[in-house]
């Protein structure tokens, strides 16, 4: 029994609320709480993720290939700091090459704080690509 339900029953016992009001409060409480997960469903425990996982299962001309990569998120954060050290001249050249390849992204506008925020929110991300001969899954754990 959770604390809020206990409090409502306590209030009912003390006569602060009527039985009808207590019932309404408990019903409201149940509406606010999420439904319990179905057994066997793919629900991972919600903790602070430490790793980015990339899993690829593919079949190339009848030969099965499998890639399983685990990268610590701390390494991504450190990489973001490394990106901040890139000299402006190199960024300019990278911008020119990206534009030439049809990706008009201005890397000089990309701030380290923005990249860090991106890494922070990676734990909410799951990418799944399912094709007949290829399966890709990217997630944090």
């Amino acid at each position: 029994m959770n604390e809020q339900r206990k409090e409502i029953l306590q209030m009912l016992a003390e006569g602060k609320v009527t039985a009808e009001e207590a019932e309404q409060l408990i019903a409201a409480l149940e509406r606010d709480q999420p439904a319990p997960a179905a057994p066997g469903s793919d629900v991972r425990p919600k903790g602070k993720p430490k790793y980015l996982r990339v899993m690829v299962d593919a079949t190339d001309e009848g030969v099965a290939s499998r890639v399983n990569i685990r990268v610590p998120l701390q390494l991504l954060r450190a990489g973001v700091r490394l990106a901040a050290l890139i000299p402006a001249q190199a960024l300019g050249e990278a911008n020119a090459e990206l534009s030439r390849s049809g990706v008009p992204v201005d890397l000089t506008q990309l701030k380290p704080e923005q990249l860090e925020a991106l890494v922070e929110h990676l734990d909410d991300m799951t990418v799944e690509v399912d094709q007949p001969d290829t399966k890709v899954r990217i997630f944090c754990e």
Partner: peptide, 10 residues
């Protein structure tokens, strides 16, 4: 930050 890194290719 490197410890924990694992690359497995088959």
């Amino acid at each position: 930050a490197l410890p924990g890194t694992r690359v497995d290719v088959e």
